[in-house]
């Protein structure tokens, strides 16, 4: 069964919005992911997130250089244009991407200006299974006390992310997806502390 561009994407949007307004809260897109019947080299949750946010008015970048067919498919399905890393509104990081290239992407991507902090990139980044028992302690708006999170991103990547969000309101907002169609969001306002070993 194909995904319903109206209702499935609305449901995905609300789940992602719920997670974005409550950093560390894991939402499941499993019901909608079941309907993804394309053969794609990314997680279903990554594809659904891209379908939800991309259209002809925004640009995206896929870090991997070996993913021309995924770029073509996302462009074809959403009418969104591919752009270099320093211009893209959405940056898609796949699981195969190397630590070094992601580090570079963190440094290069746009994180807004003081007058227009919304002119920043939103990352859709793949991780191995997400869980709420992990090495990260999250605090900030949307979190009552603190939240715990486990992702497969290394502590040096989190440091790179923290570096780019230091000058609030400048920053980048992350939508992290996993292979079980789960998503969790880390907006720029969240303080991410690496408290345990990953």
């Amino acid at each position: 069964m194909a995904i319903d561009q109206v209702h499935d994407l609305q449901q995905v949007y609300r789940k992602v919005l719920h997670s974005m307004s409550r950093p560390g809260t894991i939402s499941s897109l499993a019901d909608n992911a079941k309907k993804v019947d394309f053969n794609l080299s990314c997680f279903h949750a990554t594809f659904l997130s891209a379908m939800t946010f991309l259209d002809a008015e925004v640009t995206f970048h896929i870090l991997s250089t070996e993913q021309q067919s995924l770029i073509d498919k996302i462009s074809a399905y959403t009418s969104s244009k591919y752009a270099p890393i320093n211009e893209a509104d959405f940056i898609i990081i796949l699981q195969e991407d190397t630590e070094e290239s992601i580090q570079h992407a963190f440094a290069e991507c746009k994180n807004g200006t003081l007058i227009d902090p919304q002119h920043s990139s939103i990352w859709i980044i793949e991780s191995s299974t997400l869980s709420n028992s992990g090495e990260l302690t999250l605090t900030g708006p949307g979190i009552q006390h603190e939240a715990r999170l486990h992702t497969s991103l290394s502590s040096s990547l989190w440091q790179a992310r923290n570096e780019r969000t230091k000058e609030y309101p400048l920053g980048i907002d992350l939508i992290i997806t996993d292979e079980n169609a789960q998503v969790v969001c880390i907006p720029r306002t969240t303080t991410v502390e690496i408290t345990g070993v990953s």
Binding site: Y13, M20, D55, I122, G142
Partner: peptide, 18 residues
């Protein structure tokens, strides 16, 4: 759907920058 997407993106940024 295009209008919804544009507004949805604006809401995401609004939530990220309270």
């Amino acid at each position: 759907e295009g209008s919804k997407k544009e507004i949805r993106r604006a809401i995401m940024k609004a939530v990220a920058i309270p």
